[in-house]
């Protein structure tokens, strides 16, 4: 249980990096995947899952008012579920990733609610400034950050436990053919990833040939 709380806290800090604090890219799957893999004793699975997510969602970044799916949560959930239940099992790791995606989408909705609540905090700060309570600016920033980490942390904790149970139960009942297919997916999902990455180069220009 203590480990789950600690992992939830680290996960929440990584998720906060997406928009709320710094943007040092510790939230990117290629970093947070192996980080959680290392903590749980299987850096290889963490790195490989991180690699798949990083490549397939290479262009997903929050810009303006768009809130893309939380790739950090997707990666961390799959690494934690697979490393705690079936460590070193590649087919289980791929199944964990497939199961983590709906949870990440669910969290995006929760995050949306949080951002709507931030508007209320913003109005509270505005009122404070009008009343001469300037300290509300600093308070508001830290309340916003605290609430972000709190809701992400709670979501991680609940998803680790609930999702972990679902993952173990469903995976145990998968037929042999499906498990065999998932084992194959471990090797060819990066190929799909290469496809996503190559999309980046669709309108490449050679600088020295430009007028």
């Amino acid at each position: 249980m203590e480990l789950m709380i600690l992992l939830s806290l680290i996960g929440a800090v990584c998720s906060a990096d997406i928009t709320a604090f710094g943007q040092f890219m510790i939230s990117r799957p290629i970093f947070c995947g192996p980080l959680f893999g290392y903590i749980l004793g299987d850096i290889y699975t963490g790195l490989w899952l991180g690699l798949i997510v990083e490549m397939m969602w290479i262009n997903a970044i929050p810009m303006g008012v768009s809130v893309p799916v939380d790739l950090t949560m997707m990666t961390i959930l799959s690494v934690v579920w697979s490393c705690t239940a079936f460590q070193g099992c590649q087919e289980a790791a791929i199944f964990a990733l497939a199961l983590a995606i709906p949870f990440a989408y669910l969290y995006s909705e929760v995050d949306l609610g949080g951002r709507l609540f931030n508007t209320k905090i913003m109005h509270w700060i505005e009122k404070g400034i009008e009343q001469g309570k300037e300290y509300r600016i600093t308070q508001g920033i830290f309340i916003g950050l605290f609430l972000f980490i709190l809701r992400a942390g709670i979501a991680y904790f609940v998803f680790f436990i609930v999702g972990g149970i679902i993952f173990k139960q469903v995976y145990s009942f998968l037929p042999y053919e499906v498990v065999y297919g998932l084992k194959k997916a471990w090797y060819y999902l990066p190929v799909f990833g290469f496809g996503a990455v190559m999309y980046n180069f669709r309108n490449i220009k050679i600088p020295f040939l430009r007028k």
């Binding site: 709507l116 931030n118 913003m122 508001g140 920033i141 309340i143 916003g144």
Partner: peptide, 8 residues
């Protein structure tokens, strides 16, 4: 901290 209280 510029986006810590990002709101719509």
């Amino acid at each position: 901290f510029i986006q810590s209280l990002w709101n719509f």
